[in-house]
């Protein structure tokens, strides 16, 4: 951990100084997503086209006639960022082949929130990944429908109180475990899948750069702290992004050619309570629910550890199976 922390001191030197996502947009104070997008754009560089789903990011950045985007950018609707991105990729490919645009590699990137990725956008995403477009999809996961007023999504964590999974006399809030999107993407044989969080900027920059180089589909799941929706202090954005990794709730890892690897590995996991206690959305939780969440986090973490320890790269498995 010390090593990672030291690296972060030099983050400003390692990141591109150019800004492709300008200040002056309308994000809330302490928005982890805006920070993530700023870093993502730095890692992507200017040879990029972005297709953005409806949601916080689109609303805060594109209020007509202003725009925060220094990169070519298109927004169409909520559930179709992956399909629009597929079309951008196909269009650039055809025009390049026909000599109507310069003969250069341009990366197409689609972005959506957790709802636009895991819920309403899942079909379009599955289609795009299955077809194998040269497309990087980035999920900006702030764990609920924040833009419409903090309603639960399938990315909302167990126990969180949202406006449609409220805590009450008969309820402790969200009653389901967060959908495992990276696993769903690995199951699509996506050659590069990774999780990132802007509280670990070097890790984020490295992974986005790596995903950009993939000549095919890639998926990055970005944990985006939302002080407004989580009822947390806005100055805690970076700290919460670190705590979620240190508790093992949101491990930072990558799956390259089917091979799992932790990129940030805490020596021991901190108790989930350390992360939950700063957030109003978890304030109502009783010790038994917190214990249930703790056990759930251990279970998921162990499953991931097992994959890291035991799964082989897909390229090592290209051989005839043993006879039984």
């Amino acid at each position: 951990m010390d090593q990672v922390a030291n690296f972060d001191l030099f983050a400003s030197r390692l990141a591109d100084r150019s800004e492709y996502f300008s200040a002056g947009h309308r994000a809330c104070q302490g928005c982890g997503e805006a920070l993530a997008v700023r870093l993502i754009c730095k890692a992507l560089g200017e040879e990029t086209v972005i297709a953005n789903a409806t949601g916080c990011m689109e609303i805060i950045s594109s209020m007509y006639p202003t725009t925060a985007w220094g990169l070519p950018w298109i927004h169409v609707a909520f559930e179709n960022a992956a399909a629009v991105g597929s079309g951008v990729e196909a269009g650039l490919k055809a025009l390049r082949r026909k000599g109507r645009i310069p003969n250069r590699e341009v990366k197409t990137v689609a972005m959506a929130g957790d709802g636009g990725t895991m819920d309403i956008g899942l079909q379009a995403l599955s289609g795009a990944m299955e077809r194998g477009h040269n497309l990087l999809f980035i999920c900006l996961d702030n764990e609920a429908y924040m833009n419409t007023g903090i309603q639960r999504s399938s990315g909302t964590p167990m126990g969180a109180s949202t406006t449609t999974s409220p805590a009450g006399k008969l309820s402790y809030g969200q009653k389901t475990w967060k959908k495992n999107m990276p696993e769903i993407m690995v199951a699509h044989r996506v050659p590069y899948v990774a999780t990132v969080c802007p509280s670990y900027p070097i890790d984020l920059l490295n992974k986005v750069k790596k995903a950009k180089e993939v000549k095919g589909p890639a998926y990055i799941h970005c944990f985006s702290v939302c002080p407004t929706g989580w009822r947390a202090a806005s100055e805690l954005t970076i700290a919460l992004g670190r705590l979620v990794v240190e508790t093992g709730i949101f491990p930072l890892f990558e799956v390259e050619d089917g091979k799992y690897r932790f990129t940030v590995k805490p020596d021991t996991l901190r108790p989930v309570k350390d992360y939950l206690k700063h957030q109003g959305r978890f304030r109502h939780l009783t010790p038994d629910v917190i214990e249930m969440i703790q056990q759930g986090v251990y279970h998921e973490y162990n499953k991931l550890q097992d994959k890291v320890d035991n799964l082989h790269a897909w390229s090592e498995l290209r051989k005839k199976p043993h006879a039984r």
Partner: peptide, 22 residues
């Protein structure tokens, strides 16, 4: 480029993205 989409919603979305590139 013939994109074999998974729905009509994606069909129209793909051609929007492509049309956006020119």
């Amino acid at each position: 480029e013939y994109v074999t989409v998974e729905s009509e919603h994606s069909a129209i979305s793909v051609v929007i993205g492509a049309s956006g590139t020119g």
